[in-house]
């Protein structure tokens, strides 16, 4: 796909979204959401207020922590489970089924464990984001071409050198895919955590807007979150493609 084609597709999708949005507004009325142009203007105004940034920094910091924890822990566990076949064979189906549990059911437990506040939000992010990172990493390690490891042995690499210079680079494209999925899910987890268990942050702003019938605020904040998520995801997708292309 050429760059121009990509821009064209992006524009078309954007136009389609705007059309649906406008249509929904006509149908549901101003009690449910505000129309596109007014929302964009309000969102821009909102981005100029310190109050919004107070909430946004809370969310971004919890998000950054949950991504960092999911990435480091997820890659480490994935490499570990993958390197020891038996542990991997046991862990993989367990993680896969764990992953399909609706995470909502874990929220009460998390609240009891972490209380209200930043650590609960981070924990919500991690329970969403961690497992895909582990599963992608584990799968990549299990499916690494054996001849690459044989090459490492023939070059007399130590186990640590093999991990650092052969295993990790070989599985990096898969890890990048896992991180991309984990990244989106961490954001989801943190926002939901804020809706349930916080007085601060973007998730709280949305819930608060809903409770106080502030449709303008809710729609504008949702728009900002969507733009952020889509932007970050496309950047990661581009990186992901680059890494895969190389291989």
């Amino acid at each position: 796909m050429s760059r121009r084609q990509g821009v064209l597709d992006g524009t078309l999708i954007l136009l389609a979204i705007l059309a649906v949005w406008q249509g929904l507004y006509q149908y549901a009325g101003s009690a449910a959401l505000t129309p596109p142009w007014a929302t964009v203007r309000y969102a821009v105004d909102l981005l100029g207020t310190p109050n919004f940034w107070g909430h946004a920094t809370q969310t971004l910091s919890a998000f950054a922590w949950s991504v960092a924890i999911s990435a480091v822990l997820g890659i480490a566990l994935g490499l570990w489970f993958g390197a020891f076949r038996f542990a991997g064979d046991v862990a993989e189906p367990m993680l896969a089924s764990l992953y399909t549990i609706p995470k909502v059911t874990l929220y009460p437990v998390m609240l009891l464990l972490f209380g209200l506040g930043p650590s609960a939000k981070i924990a919500f992010g991690v329970i969403h984001g961690l497992i895909p990172v582990v599963l992608f990493t584990l799968g990549a390690v299990k499916n690494i071409r054996p001849v690459l490891l044989r090459t490492a042995r023939s070059l007399r690499l130590s186990p640590i050198q093999t991990a650092r210079f052969v295993l990790v680079p070989a599985v990096l494209p898969e890890i990048a895919s896992g991180l991309r999925v984990g990244f989106s899910l961490c954001l989801l987890g943190v926002l939901i955590g804020e809706m349930f268990a916080s007085q601060r942050g973007i998730g709280f702003l949305i819930i608060n807007g809903i409770n106080s019938h502030n449709v303008k605020l809710t729609t504008a904040v949702t728009l900002i979150v969507i733009v952020f998520a889509v932007g970050a995801n496309s950047a990661l997708l581009a990186l992901d493609r680059r890494l895969h292309h190389r291989g």
């Binding site: 071409r145 001849v147 690459l148 044989r150 090459t151 042995r153 023939s154 070059l155 007399r156 052969v166 680079p169 070989a170 990096l172 190389r246 291989g247």
Partner: peptide, 20 residues
């Protein structure tokens, strides 16, 4: 148990590192 120093191996399968 290990490849001795001074022995070099070229495998039948493609063993080039795709990331380099």
């Amino acid at each position: 148990g290990s490849v001795p120093d001074g022995v070099g191996v070229v495998f039948q399968e493609d063993a080039s590192f795709p990331w380099l």
